[in-house]
Design a binder for these strands. Structure first.
Length: 746
DNA sequence: AAGCAATAG
DNA sequence: GGTTCTATTGCTT
């Protein structure tokens, strides 16, 4: 599950006495503004940030889930065990000295009556985790997951809205704690947005508690870094707001650089090599020297982080981008065991994939081998594309998908491990990636339409990544920092695929296939009931009241558009797409699938149809092609081919056709056994020997008949390579294949 | 597109 | 800096 920072962190709010931290507000803010405003063009942001960001962190999440499943565990010391490790435990156990990642043996010494629950199967945790995210999303779609138990939320739009609509904003005070302030009433007048943020945080925590029965902490601040750092200040089931004047305090009190989110082990080692150990060290270190060591983007990011500056957006996570399953063990050294293990792992993974409903395009096998030199760890992996017909079988739940995948897995395995030599594995992982919502990748990569047809998953589509804090000029010139109006091209992607998702979902429910939110087969009832239908607003658009604001241009638009959509870019979009962007799904108003958007709203409540974050499909899709006899065996050999061809991009082969694999330079040295003369050259004898006997016989029979093997060279791929590499070199590096690239002026 | 490193919980 | 079981992003080829 996770590492430190919960128990072993001796906590930020410890030393009250020495708060002469090197930075005071007066120093921090100009510094922050200067650093944040270090863009090449455009004025520096006037206010450093009007954003309001929440961070939620569930209390000892796995333990809470188990205590809900079995309330008798509530009052006993409870530890969640994975292998020989306690990955987390409840507060009763913590009081007795049990900590995260303590060995079971040590934990039993500390707490002899510790009750252990096995936690290797993450199913329930994953399901509950997504329910939390979905619940949060029902209030505001800008929710980013961080692991299973944490969520960020950008509630700037909600706050702005309450600000304009609320009558008595002056006499309100903070909900929960305020960092470094004894009274929540102290500075309330100076920070109306954060006050409202603290109210929203309290409401959301209450909702999580009443609807899901979970408790957790929340942090309220002006960016993700700060929200995360402050949320743990008061520990179980409380919340804390950080005021801008205390940024210096909270950063200064962190102590070691390792405590800064984003600074991991390697980075802290490199920093240490520069003589930097504390956050203050980094704050005061010359930026130019940092750049020399890390390069500009990373250096800027690190330097900013040390100052409490973090311009990174809350990026909606959407459905997961990969599904994987793994198991670790002391020793595995026979191919027989490997075969068995991958089969087990794949069985459950395929089932999960089936429930998800999307179709994986890539399969990856990862191992970890034991070796004295390598110490223990470091993983290696091999991956290969999944042929379309197999992908369809997987997502439609066809029963023979597993066998074919196992064949692929074994093939991939032998690319890493010489079957003839001894080996010692300590872990196997199987993974589906490149998950496509609709059909096979029609690969209309350059076409705008691909953004509508490719991925119907909510949240991100393929690759949205950004470090929007660093690359200043490329982003386009309206960099409204903290106002949600910077040009974040990936948001266009996001938003469009999101809409597509809604359309698809609507179509499907109209067709009588009601997918449930994040349905699990076991959990039928939606624990997250939709919020009251009278309040159909999701208030995260930065704009004010959104009464169709499409007459004017520029600023007018800027205020009505979804966050992060540049008005300049917007104007260049085709009409229909503009309309899409202004439609309720994007600007914040959503409509229920069956409800005609009811009455006059209470001020800000929470409703709107539950967003479909992660909606594994519950009803199996009708299998598109009837399995004919012989399919399986052909598929096995195809699968082997797929795995084989992966490294050598030779002539591609249409599925269903047999090939002779050209033995590339990287091909495994053939271990020729007596019976091998009958194998097609593309079949690994090692794999073959692991197949069930009847499959072996069938395969042999088939090969005999097909002896004249079709070669099928590059006939399909005609104008293959050609130009298409347009490169986009001007914008290279950071820019992806996204909408912005297509509509950007120049 | 593939493989790995780094980071995270 | 490693334990478990994931998941994401960025770098390099």
């Amino acid at each position: 599950m996770q590492t430190s920072d919960d128990d072993d962190d001796d906590d930020i709010a410890e030393d009250e006495t020495e708060w002469q931290s090197s930075l005071t507000e007066l120093e921090t803010h100009p510094a922050a503004a200067a650093a944040a405003g270090s863009h090449i063009d455009g004025p520096p942001p006037q206010e450093t940030s009007r954003r309001v960001i929440l961070h939620f962190d569930l209390d000892c999440f796995y333990a809470q889930v188990e205590m809900i499943r079995n309330p008798a565990l509530r009052n006993v010391p409870l530890g969640i065990q994975q292998k020989y490790i306690i990955v987390t435990c409840n507060y009763v156990a913590r009081d007795q000295g049990v900590t995260k990642l303590m060995s079971v043996a040590d934990a039993k010494v500390k707490c002899p009556n510790l009750v252990l629950v096995k936690g290797e199967d993450l199913t329930h945790y994953r399901e509950t985790s997504y329910k939390v995210t979905e619940l949060l999303m029902s209030y505001c779609p800008l929710v980013e997951r961080l692991g299973f138990d944490e969520n960020f939320m950008d509630i700037t739009g909600m706050v702005e809205r309450r600000l304009t609509q609320t009558t008595d904003s002056h006499n309100a005070s903070f909900e929960g704690h305020v960092y470094n302030h004894a009274s929540g009433a102290d500075k309330a007048g100076d920070h109306p947005r954060l006050v409202l943020g603290s109210h929203i945080a309290a409401e959301l925590r209450a909702a999580i508690n009443t609807k899901l029965g979970l408790t957790g902490c929340a942090g309220v601040a002006t960016n993700k870094l700060l929200a995360k750092l402050v949320s743990g200040t008061f520990k179980p089931n409380q919340q804390t707001t950080l005021l801008p004047e205390n940024i210096g305090d909270i950063m200064g009190r962190l102590g070691g650089l390792r405590r800064v989110p984003g600074v991991g082990h390697q980075t802290s080692k490199r920093l240490r090599a520069l003589g930097l150990v504390s956050v203050q060290d980094l704050q005061l270190f010359p930026r130019a020297e940092l750049v020399r060591e890390f390069g500009s983007p990373t250096a800027q990011r690190l330097g900013n982080l040390s100052l409490g500056i973090d311009g990174s957006p809350v990026t909606p996570s959407g459905a997961p981008q990969s599904l994987s399953d793994e198991d670790s063990f002391k020793k595995m050294s026979t191919t027989k065991e490997v075969f068995q293990k991958t089969q087990d792992l794949l069985s459950s993974l395929v089932e999960r994939m089936h429930k998800d409903g999307r179709q994986p395009q890539t399969f990856r096998l990862t191992i970890r081998r034991y070796s004295a030199t390598n110490k223990w760890f470091s993983r290696e992996s091999r991956q290969c594309p999944i042929p379309n017909y197999l992908g369809q079988k997987i997502s439609s739940g066809s029963s023979d998908a597993v066998a074919q995948l196992v064949a692929m897995a074994v093939k991939l395995f032998h690319k890493m491990v010489d079957g003839g030599a001894a080996f010692h594995l300590t872990l196997i992982n199987v993974c589906f990636a490149n998950l496509q919502s609709r059909g096979p990748a029609a690969s209309g990569k350059g076409a705008i339409t691909s953004f509508f047809s490719h991925s119907a998953s909510p949240g991100k589509s393929q690759s949205s990544s950004q470090d929007q804090a660093s690359p200043p000029s490329v982003r386009g010139r309206r960099t409204d920092h903290g106002f949600g109006c910077d040009v974040d091209s990936s948001y266009l992607e996001t938003v469009i695929t999101q809409d597509n998702f809604h359309k698809v979902a609507a179509a499907e429910s109209a067709a009588g296939a009601p997918r449930h939110l994040h349905g699990s087969p076991t959990t039928k009832g939606p624990v997250v009931s939709a919020a009251p239908p009278d309040l159909q607003r999701v208030m995260c658009s930065t704009g004010g009241p959104e009464s169709d604001g499409r007459t004017s241009e520029g600023l007018e638009f800027g205020c009505r558009l979804p966050p992060n959509v540049d008005p300049d870019v917007f104007r260049l979009l085709p009409e229909d797409i503009q309309r899409e962007l202004l439609s309720p799904a994007f600007t914040g108003v959503q409509q229920g699938p069956s409800k005609p958007a009811a009455g006059p709203s209470r001020v800000d409540t929470f409703d709107s149809p539950p967003p479909r974050l992660y909606a594994p499909q519950l009803t199996p899709r009708p299998s598109t092609h009837s399995p004919r006899l012989g399919d399986t065996r052909q598929a096995v050999s195809d699968a082997m081919n797929t795995a084989d061809n992966q490294t050598s991009p030779g002539p591609s082969v249409a599925p269903g056709q047999a090939t002779v694999e050209a033995q590339g330079p990287g091909a495994r040295p053939p271990r020729l056994l007596s019976s091998e003369c009958d194998f097609p050259m593309n079949v690994d004898p090692g794999v073959f020997s692991e197949l069930p006997g009847d499959v072996q016989r069938d395969l042999m029979a088939e090969w005999k008949q097909q002896r004249p093997v079709l070669k099928t060279p590059s006939c399909i791929k005609q104008g293959r390579n050609s130009s298409a590499k347009d490169k986009k070199s001007a914008v290279k590096g950071n820019q992806r294949n996204n909408l912005y690239n297509y509509f950007k002026p120049n």
